[in-house]
Amino acid sequence: MRNLLTLSRRELGAIAFAPSSYWILGLFLFVVAYFFRLALVAVGGDISQSYRSFASVVYFQLLLCVVPPLLTMRSIASERHSGTFEMLMTAPVTDRQVVLSKFVGAFAFYAALWLPTIVIPIALFQFGAYPDFGQVIAFTIGLLGLGAFFVSIGIFTSSVTSKIQAAFFLAFVLNVFFLFGVAGLAWLSPSEIVRDWSSALIIPQHLDEFARGIVDVRYLVFYVTATGFFLFLAVRSLESRQWR
């Protein structure tokens, strides 16, 4: 536990002190603010509809696919690339602690990216529009759950390569697959059973429900399970140095 804390702090520090993180923050806030405004206008200023409208914007969904890999691509790949991996793995720490700390650090930064967006409901409030805070909270929970899932994918891809660009690209492709590809599968599949099962995994639909203020625990369970699965794969990938 102590090691986990020490390592996570170091990881968060590494992200927080990298200049590129602030480019990411800037891009992120710009896209969120810009498209939220568009979404708000598109529904004629109806606040309760604006979150749903915003959640359905493809550029926003793409942003969700891009940002987590930007935060995670360096996590393990750059340690391998620069050789610090050897320093890390010859310290008395387990592979699991390393992977988990990388996850915690990147996820903490991802969560922090959302903090400034609190000004959006506050600003709406100032202008006399009353957003439903339950709705805001539900949407935030959904975004954090999905974020955890995508961060874990990024940690995994960063663990399989020493090339940062490859780690980014692979994670991005996986994210796009989970966000858009599964929906495609669900709609296109001729098999009733596949359609039925995969329809529960359509993330844009999850986002829509979260944006309506509904927290469906099944979706959260799905995110948590998937996160655990990809982190498990990352641990295996670190362990692979033992049987290679």
């Binding site: 170091r10 590494a14 320093m87 010859t90 008395p92 720490v93």
Partner: peptide, 21 residues
């Protein structure tokens, strides 16, 4: 392994370090 690592001080060949610290 962990107990052994606690008893060893290791300097790897190319001295990889976190340059941002």
């Amino acid at each position: 392994s962990l107990a052994v690592r606690r008893r060893i001080g290791y300097l790897p060949e190319s001295v990889p370090l976190y340059t941002d610290m």
